[in-house]
Amino acid sequence: MIGQPDQTRFRFKPDPRALILGVGLWTILFVLMQTPRALALAGGLALILAKAVGASWRTLIRRMAALNALLIFLLPLMAVESFALSAWPWRLAPDRLILFAAVALRANAILILAQGLVGAMDMATLGHALVHLRCPPKLAHLIVFSARYLDLLRHEWNRLYRAARMRGFRMSIGLRTWRVLGALVGGLLLRSLDRAERVLYAMKCRGYQGRFFMLHHFRYTAADAVFVLTLALAGGIVIWLDRM
């Protein structure tokens, strides 16, 4: 689940808290910005950030393709003068097209930004960083636990699915497929509940009383301060461009 650190290539590794702060700040900016011009620039900067912290082109392009396929379906809904059968042939409204472009750019920019965040750290680090940023511990631990147990769930799902396949099950479009899938998901759910109970037992066995402690400490460096400042500055410039 956690990628091997890539040592052959230089990669800027900001403190996870700095990264979360910076990305959070920029997400707010993206929501505030209105003009396609500023959004396009911000999207480009987000792309540079995502690449700098190690997101791969392949995943970026795959995710963006999925998002934009969805957006194309939204195009007639959002950018035509009147979206009614009687109004066929539909005519694009220029002002609405600009609005649509802004929405599409914003969605892409936020996706790139999120990808940059995910590319730079695993869920566990994200959870730890959130606790240090005074996020409610319950929420942060939920994230940490899901990081650990999503992986187990995937293994268990693969086991169940493989067992079904071994007995001749093949995916197809039909009632039987849905019934088998339903049974598999049900099995997965039951197993998860059992698992949750046993994990709680294991926690109690080591003296758990509702409080979490963490060994891991992060260290802020001067580079992280520069990093956050740069992001804030770039954000400021883009916002100024947006308002001009």
Binding site: M123, A124, T125, G127, H128, V144, F145, A147, R148, Y149, L152, R195, R198, V199, Y201, A202, M203, R206, G207, Y208, Q209, R211, F213, M214, L215, H216
Partner: peptide, 22 residues
């Protein structure tokens, strides 16, 4: 099943869990 018992993000955090509770 050890997977029930290792519920933290890293091995070190798991080992620290009990001692912190002490």
């Amino acid at each position: 099943d050890s997977d029930d018992q290792l519920f933290c993000a890293t091995v070190a955090e798991d080992v620290a869990f009990g001692p912190f509770n002490l």
